[in-house]
Design a protein around this nucleic acid. Structure first.
Lengths: 257, 257
DNA sequence: TAGTGGTCTAGACCACTTA
DNA sequence: AAGTGGTCTAGACCACTAG
């Protein structure tokens, strides 16, 4: 028998360690991932059948199945009923990216939000359409500037439905409101949100506030939030300097997934 | 007993239909999603325990667990061992975007790729660094213009490691090579890829090729692909007019997930 | 201590593919 | 007909949280 001490290394063995805190299905995921990464199984190859994996690693079918489902979710393999499980080549088209970099900016302690403007206005034609309300309805208009160590990074404009029965207005004016929007702390009233990322260039106002040249590249992140009656409750957009934000992602086998 | 005919409606019942082609765990996912969407369970609320759901819907614990795991993956609920399963508010920071719109552009029949240039060159300092090769090494430089119905949409530049033992060069010159890059058809040699999305503005050459104004907003999608020895095999970037591409997504409960 | 989620078993039956 | 993945069962044991 192999003496199993504390295994401090993260290197995957070729056996399941039943005494590990790491679940068996997860160990199996890592074993198969590394075999694929090492080229033992190449794109297009068929993996051993589930029954074979059960015998090889001494786990039940459900555990093997769970591991394989995770690999499918990760886009590493694909399954075909009656044929087998196959290694997928990396596909650019399946790549996904997230707003983690943006979120870390909001959760950063050094980030401060300065309210430039926050008061009731009559909804413009565009705002009214986005919020599904009549033109001229009174809404709350908020302009914020997010700074990191004094340097402006993001300019945010937002229209809010004015509902006196809700504490929305006061809550939204908090400097932490934006962070809450990102981590969902205060969103018990909101059901869903829609997001659109576009490439844009800074106009004069945006450039002045972000202390960047007019015409500089920037990201626009438009957002619309809905309440549980599917009525828009908020519409707005973030403008972020292009040289301050980039989205990264990977396809295929990458480390520590 | 309820007479169960063909249920053409997609509306979820409040019971599991054991004769449906839809798996029980999936039916349970939809049932719970609609209950949350309907406001029966609000953000912060605790869902019924797994044991209760087993009894309520007459399924085994593993089936309930699988359904809940899917809801966790979808970001709709979160679980806490010993406490329960809780409905999550929509969080901007957890939003993910995919390149589906970009991929559909490549798989579109009306999209054609025109090779502007494709021959061996000496690697520039930057290309050499990105490809981890000595400056001056001979590499293949390819410039492509992707058009849709005659209108240029994407400008692509790419440096390829020149390896005579591989059919890479010929394969990459095919007009379908880019589509393959996206759907992975020909990537049995590639292990992984890295992607960086940035906001940029068109320079003079890009503007001329894309028939857009200089300084117009655009997306830059830089990509690096690696072989199974973790050596870079390809480095390049797509430039796409900002008015032709946008990334959309949703957070919280949305339809037909 | 009771209740919760987290993992896992050792099978079963089914649908599908291939030969 | 044999082999494959897809689903599901009816429990088990564990770790964690709460009263």
């Amino acid at each position: 028998m192999v003496q199993k001490d504390r295994q401090s290394t993260a290197e995957p063995l070729d056996e399941i360690d039943r005494d590990s805190y790491e679940p068996a299905y997860n160990q199996l995921v890592n074993i198969l991932r590394h075999q694929i990464a090492a080229g033992i199984f190449r794109p297009g190859d068929r993996l051993p059948s589930e029954a074979q994996l059960c015998g090889r690693y001494q786990v039940s079918p459900m555990t093997v199945r769970r591991a394989i489902n995770i690999l499918v979710d990760q886009g590493v393999v694909s399954t075909a009923q009656g044929r087998g499980t196959f290694v997928k080549p990396p596909e650019l088209g399946t790549a996904t990216f997230d707003l983690q970099e943006l979120q870390s900016l909001f959760s950063d302690e050094r980030t401060t939000a300065r309210i430039l403007e926050a008061w009731p206005v009559s909804a413009t034609e565009r705002a009214a359409r986005k919020l599904a309300i009549p033109v001229g309805t009174r809404v709350i208009y908020i302009r914020r500037l997010l700074c990191q160590e004094g340097a402006p990074v993001i300019y945010h404009r937002e229209y809010l439905i004015y509902d006196p029965t809700l504490p929305t207005v006061e809550a939204e004016l908090e400097v932490t409101a934006l962070r809450d929007l990102f981590d969902g702390s205060g969103g018990a009233v909101l059901k869903k949100g829609e997001l659109i990322i576009e490439a844009t260039v800074l106009d004069e106002e945006e450039a002045r506030l972000l202390q960047a040249p007019v015409g500089a590249a920037a990201f626009s992140l438009e957002h619309t939030f809905y309440d549980f009656d599917d009525r828009p409750a908020s519409w707005g957009w973030f403008i972020c300097r292009g040289d301050r934000l980039r989205f990264r992602t990977t396809v295929g086998i990458h480390e520590t997934a």
